[in-house]
């Protein structure tokens, strides 16, 4: 007992500070402590103005993403013992604006996520009495790993292309696009295809692969994007000979749905 570990925490209050600054805290070191525990000790005992985001403490909500010694990590899944006795530097996620202290504003990612329509799209709504859509284990295996995404944004903090040009739709959103495109129950690929084919879609990725390395849920966005590149290239070839799938809009879907119901 009695060991202490140094936390170097980035602080930024947009109402007071011109730019972010680093502040150092000494917290008691216990073998079981996560980075998030260290932050909570700091807030409870040393500086209650420290602001950070967290919820579940079990790597499922995706709220506590930070840069830990420059690497995007979940605070609850990263342990101080892996750094002790060296100091640990904690900063907000890279490539996003800072809201306050360790809270980054990931709303740009959320907009990208909305744009790829991350939900099952059916041309016409089934009725409850038809029962659930069944799926074979093979059909499930095709998209399952991509469905593990918890929208934590670590992959955006890792992606150098997103850092250079934030018009890029980015790793998690494109991995989720692939997840729905490869789901046998989904019929919405034609609505997502324009995003996939765009420069800001899969084609801004240069397959650095750091997104897949930092993902706390072992999703492999780099693989998803590069599989989508193959689909997009096939679609490009079909487009050249005038046989490409016609991109659809949400209005088209409603028209089809009404036609079938009516």
């Amino acid at each position: 007992m009695g060991d202490k570990i140094t936390l170097e925490i980035m602080r930024y209050d947009p109402e007071k500070d011109d730019k972010p600054r680093m502040q150092t805290f000494q917290v008691p070191y216990v073998y079981e402590m996560s980075v998030l525990d260290g932050l909570q000790y700091t807030k409870d005992h040393l500086d209650q103005t420290l602001t950070y985001r967290y919820s579940c403490k079990m790597a499922i909500c995706g709220s506590c993403g930070f840069m830990v010694n420059g690497v995007p990590k979940l605070g609850c899944k990263t342990f101080l013992r892996d750094y002790f006795p060296q100091p640990v530097r904690i900063e907000p996620l890279a490539n996003f604006p800072i809201e306050k202290d360790l809270v980054s504003d990931i709303s740009d990612f959320i907009k990208k996520l909305e744009a790829i329509k991350p939900y099952l799209i059916r041309e016409n709504k089934g009725s409850l009495k038809d029962g659930a859509y069944s799926q074979t284990p093979e059909q499930l295996a095709r998209y399952r790993q991509y469905s593990m995404c918890i929208n934590c944004g670590l992959c955006y903090a890792a992606c150098p292309q997103y850092g250079l040009k934030n018009e890029f739709v980015g790793p998690a959103a494109l991995a989720l696009m692939h997840r729905y495109n490869t789901d046998s129950r989904d019929q919405g690929r034609a609505e997502r295809i324009p995003v996939m084919n765009a420069e800001e879609g899969v084609w801004s990725c240069t397959f650095v692969g750091y997104c897949s390395e930092v993902c706390p849920k072992k999703v492999d966005p780099a693989a998803a994007i590069n599989q989508s590149k193959v689909l997009s290239s096939i679609d490009y070839g079909l487009h050249l000979v005038g046989k490409a799938e016609q991109p659809k809009t949400i209005d088209d879907r409603h028209r089809i749905s009404e036609r079938k119901e009516g």
Partner: peptide, 17 residues
């Protein structure tokens, strides 16, 4: 760049690369 500049991507024109 602040993400606040973009309201929504719903009306964005996606051009084929």
């Amino acid at each position: 760049k602040s993400s606040h500049q973009v309201k929504t991507l719903q009306d964005k024109q996606w051009n084929r690369s």
